[in-house]
């Protein structure tokens, strides 16, 4: 998705594995976006990017963290910000393609998925599968 080496990136399917192993999701979308459609996972923290600089220390340093947003761009910058502020680059990763791909894959959400499904297109990687495959993307 992006040409960079600072932040490790994983797809939504791999994110499921991280969640099973106790990872925290940090959603950096703004509150109005989250009100419409939210990730439905056990451990989630919403810190909008507009507040991130002042609130990032709410994110525990010892935990595995997956940064998420709508399409993966904002969360990538936030993940880079965390790593630049001393967070472990093995523990903080970015989820590529955001909630757009998460919804396409049929992963759990709360809210109105039509806002995503009506506006996205798939590319060759990580296209939705009917068999519920857990192989990456």
């Amino acid at each position: 998705m992006s040409n960079q080496n600072l932040v490790k990136e994983i797809c939504p399917t791999t994110t499921q594995e991280w969640i099973k192993n106790g990872a925290l999701l940090v959603d950096v979308r703004e509150n109005d976006e989250v009100e419409v459609l939210a990730y439905d996972v056990p451990l989630i923290l919403n810190i909008p990017l507009s507040e991130f600089e002042n609130r990032f220390e709410e994110i525990p340093t010892e935990k595995d963290v997956v940064m998420v947003c709508r399409s993966g761009g904002r969360s990538l910058r936030a993940a880079g910000f965390l790593i630049n502020h001393g967070y472990n680059s093995e523990k903080v990763v970015n989820m590529q393609h955001g909630i757009n791909r998460w919804v396409e894959k049929g992963f759990p959400t709360k809210g109105d998925t039509s806002v995503v499904l009506g506006n996205t297109t798939s590319n060759s990687c990580c296209t939705p599968t009917s068999g519920g495959s857990t192989s990456c993307c």
Partner: peptide, 13 residues
């Protein structure tokens, strides 16, 4: 505009 460079500057918004 390079994403890695943006991250080096700690750009969020």
């Amino acid at each position: 505009e390079d994403i890695e460079e943006l991250m080096n500057y700690n750009v969020l918004v």
